[in-house]
Simulated scan of single mutants.
Amino acid sequence: MSEHATGPYERAIATSDREFRELADFAPVMIWRAGVDKLCDWFNKPWLDYTGRRMEEEVGNGWAEGVHPEDLERCLATYVGAFDAREPFSMEYRLRRRDGEYCWLLDNGAPFYRDGHFAGYFGSCIDVTAHRDAQRAQRILINELNHRVKNTLAVVQAMAIQSFREERPAEQSLALFESRLRALAGAHDLLVARGWEQVALRGVVEATIAPHDPDGDRVSLDGPPLMLPPESAVSVAMALHELLTNATKYGALSVPRGTIRLDWRYVPERHTVRLEWKESGGPLVEPPGQRGFGTRFIERVLAAQAGGTAAVTFAEDGVHCFFEAEARSSTSPLWGRAGTTPLTTV
């Protein structure tokens, strides 16, 4: 692009219409102007304040020095193509702000005419960085919601299939299924209260145990303060519900003298919590002929949902269960799904 005899900076100096300059300089947008040679010859005060550069640095093609290298070719192609076609254009690109940070601008340009002859282009820009960040956050939120809904539906589907597949009366199957749904809803209530970010392990444990041990003297707890991500919180709550239901019907909680000990410890190298459930004082345990729904549900579905592993054994003196799930110490920051550490078999 070649300059005319009168250069862009001289044209900038010549732009002296006082009322226009005042209006443009106090406008809430960044405004630029280009002549018929495609070279920008004027920028308003908001533009210069934004870039932190002088008029003589921006005119001509100087403004392009602030465009992000990854956006420059596309930006110039859009500008030149619209200019040659004498058509309006709208594009987004990153421009370097006076503090050195690249921010997204929405740039709208349109041709203008004097006495019926093409005279160049006027354009206006606004910073849309916050808007783009909000859109990105919304996409992440939608993807996360989709992931969580699918996980929840997978758990509900597993409960439904297994609950109604067992050879028991329909009313009993329905009652068991409703009980499990209530436990799932309770876990979700805890997460909703914390904005679906993270929840204290002890809070999940105590809330799940409370209906089965209202006096708090049958189940003893011991472990450090830990935080669980949503999937782990739901899985831990559901696994405890299955163990408590079994203990109430057949195990330690089915007799007055039976007790349960639930301990947990943090495994820092894997960023997981290892919970150990041990019943004692209950009826003599006979290993079942086949794995029941509760056992399969804990070992296959819930452990996978929590990003961990589980194992349930039927010792003669009581049911024994290990459950490992993703967790963090209470002082650790939030973590993302991509940071999940592979787990070993319990």
Rank of each mutant, 00 (worst) to 15 (best):
V149W: 15
T313E: 14
R114C: 07
G336M: 05
G289C: 03
Y250K: 03
E65L: 11
N246Y: 12
T295N: 05
E299K: 05
Q135H: 09
S124N: 09
L201V: 12
A306K: 04
L184W: 13
L141C: 05
R53Y: 06
R96K: 15
G282I: 08
N108V: 15
G339W: 10
Y50Q: 00
G289S: 11
L190A: 07
V59H: 01
G186M: 05
K38G: 00
E276M: 11
A338M: 04
E65R: 13
K278N: 10
L228T: 07
V346L: 10
Y102C: 04
L48R: 15
Q290H: 13
P46E: 07
D37R: 09
P256V: 08
N151E: 13
D37Y: 14
I126G: 09
D217K: 11
H241R: 08
G258T: 13
Q157V: 04
P229Q: 15
R139K: 12
E269R: 12
A200Y: 11
G52L: 02
W277A: 03
L23S: 14
L275N: 02
A170K: 10
G292K: 08
P211H: 14
M238W: 12
A207I: 04
A310M: 02
N61E: 04
T248A: 15
V205L: 13
Q305C: 01
A24C: 08
H271E: 10
P229M: 13
K150P: 00
T344N: 05
L174Q: 14
R98M: 03
A175C: 03
L181E: 05
A306C: 10
R270S: 05
Q138E: 15
L302Q: 00
A303N: 05
P230L: 10
H241G: 03
T208N: 04
F293A: 01
A160M: 11
